[in-house]
Amino acid sequence: MEPNFASYSVGLMAIIKTEGLTYTYPVATKPAVEDVSITIEKGEFAVLTGPSGCGKTTLCRCFNGLIPHFYRGDLQGHIRVIDFDVRETPIHKLALHVGLVFQNPENQLFALSVEKDVAFGLENLGMLREEMQKRVNYALETSGISHLRLKAPHELSGGQQQRVAIAGIIAMQPEVMVLDEPTSFLDPLGAEKIFKVIRILNQSLNMTVILVEHRLDLAARYANHVIVMDRGKVILDGEPKEVLSSEKARLVGVGIPKVTRLYQRLEEDGILKASEIPLSSEEMIALLRGVLAGD
């Protein structure tokens, strides 16, 4: 096994690479993640999706070392993130490179004010005060919470708390950004704005993004890689259009965009056929216009 794995680390672009990764929580009877072999390239915007309880969060915890260092349990197989073997790298070291927004924001916030919470990660980086101030302001601004900067995080609404957690990672600008259902508490326009900011960071800084999301209506358009899990295993891994149009994705009940579902229903009935499956309402409108032209 070992020699085989060594060759991955010399691969130029792979930033996350797992090989036969299997993890079982302490006292659990079956693995939460089973035989997962995936590669995420530097600068990718990857969306990780799949039914509730399929292992998405567990896999994210492997990316930043919470598994195995905090959760313990049994980890088999290989996982490398950037240049680190996760198993051999302490969490605090990985944390400088991999930022994780938790699924439940309340569990992540602890400072006495929003501003301090957002600045926390930067203090650990030993950043200059001025640069820090600039980053924090940018993060608060783009997350839409400048007006809350002096408030206590535990006295905010659910969505406001989630924005604070996201602002923390936007300020950090880590090489790898892992966001676990980061928009579940956000209002739709807010979610859209935050996806756009993340997309900008992803493109301008070549930051790698891994986004766990059910609401593919909003997220699909930003992704260039989609991974679908089911019962601990990766069942689909590839280009968004390919993955989301596959029969398997539909069968496991992935949150395929509504317009894509509409297209699939019409296609089943033999009424509509496109060379490329629509993922957004714009694409669906263009397709229907093409077909109905000259009506």
């Binding site: 799949g50 039914p51 509730s52 699924q103 659910g158 259902e181 579940s184 508490f185 059910h214 009940g253 992935v254 949150g255 395929i256």
Partner: peptide
Amino acid sequence: EPTIGQDHRQ
């Protein structure tokens, strides 16, 4: 927020 964290089928 009953649908938080739920997949399409749920």
